[in-house]
């Protein structure tokens, strides 16, 4: 009997903490179906009185941009910045690890390290001025390009290319392959898993971005879902149910992607972070 006590304690702890971690999602989801009056009378009710979908109807337009537009923006900005991030970072990390001592390579590496050490939120402010000089303020390309640079992506690729056996590259070169041939026929076929992990992690991280989107945008037409959620949060006159509905829509895609790929995402983020 006493042998079971540690099991019971461990499970009691882990289950109650897990419930606390997941509860806000549940409260948000249920809240999006309940009117303010219903919540005032029973804040902790586990199931909605009726599945009141009016909030999802009310948020079809937020601050002048349609919900459809915001959703398309979110997917477009996230997908495009992820694609650019994967290609550009993979090529960059590959070149930098292939011949780290080439003239200028150290400079690029240190420049990158300095960039990711700089507090992100405070980097965005001068980026506003840079975008102004480049004429990219208010454009999708400005937002997408800025989101294409990230630390975890670089460190995951760097780690992979560093551990790639040099003999394979040398052998291919001996056989007369060009550097391009080496990259496309020798390295990239083996790099599929790391490319997959970086794609997933970048997608999840960029989906959440709101501050650069808000700073670089000129109108809500280029907002993403999190940016719209924030501007709805600062509006006067609080529409609790609508905010919960929009928060649910913002959260659901990443939760689905994460639950399907959780092991890979957690390992990827942990590996990319430990390296940095």
């Amino acid at each position: 009997m006493t042998a079971r006590i540690p099991y019971v304690l461990a499970y009691a702890c882990a289950i109650s903490l897990s419930i606390l971690f997941v509860y806000p999602y549940y409260w948000m989801f249920v809240g999006s179906f309940r009117t303010t009056e219903e919540i005032l009378t029973a804040p902790l009710r586990l199931l909605p009185e009726v599945f009141n979908l009016s909030a999802y109807g009310e948020i079809t337009s937020i601050g002048g941009a349609s919900l459809l537009r915001l959703t398309v923006n979110s997917f477009w900005i996230t997908t495009a910045s992820t694609a650019i991030a994967v290609v550009v970072t993979a090529l960059g990390a590959y070149a930098l690890t292939r011949r780290p001592k080439m003239l200028g390579f150290n400079l690029i590496r240190y420049g990158f390290l300095l960039t990711i050490m700089y507090p992100f939120m405070l980097l965005v402010i001068p980026v506003f001025i840079v975008m102004f000089h480049l004429g990219l303020l208010g454009s999708y390309s400005g937002i997408i390009l800025f989101l294409s640079l990230g630390p975890i992506q670089f460190f995951l690729f760097e780690q992979f290319f560093r551990s790639f056996p040099k003999e394979l590259i040398d052998a291919a070169l001996m056989d007369g392959a060009s550097e391009l041939g080496v990259l496309f026929r020798v390295v990239l076929p083996v790099a599929r898993p790391v490319v997959g992990t970086v794609t997933l992690v970048t997608f999840l991280l960029n989906w959440s971005q709101w501050f650069p989107v808000l700073v670089i945008s000129r109108t809500p037409d280029t907002y993403t879902l999190p940016a719209a959620l924030l501007s709805m949060n600062s509006e006067l006159g609080t529409n609790f149910q609508g905010i919960m509905a929009l928060a649910t829509l913002t959260t659901v895609p990443v939760v689905i992607v994460f639950v399907l790929t959780q092991r890979r995402v957690m390992q990827g983020i942990a590996a990319g972070a430990i390296k940095g």
Binding site: A14, I15, L17, S18, I19, F21, V22, P24, Y25, W27, M28, L204, L205, W207, S208, W210, L225, P226, A227, L229, L230, N233, I243, M244, A247, T250, T251, V254, V255, F258, V259, Q262, V265, M266, I269
Partner: peptide, 20 residues
């Protein structure tokens, strides 16, 4: 499940989490 629960907030958009 326990790992999933504790890590889920990390990948949740921070604006959404904090608004809740």
């Amino acid at each position: 499940f326990f790992r999933l629960a504790v890590f889920l907030p990390v990948i949740t958009p921070d604006v959404a989490g904090f608004i809740v």
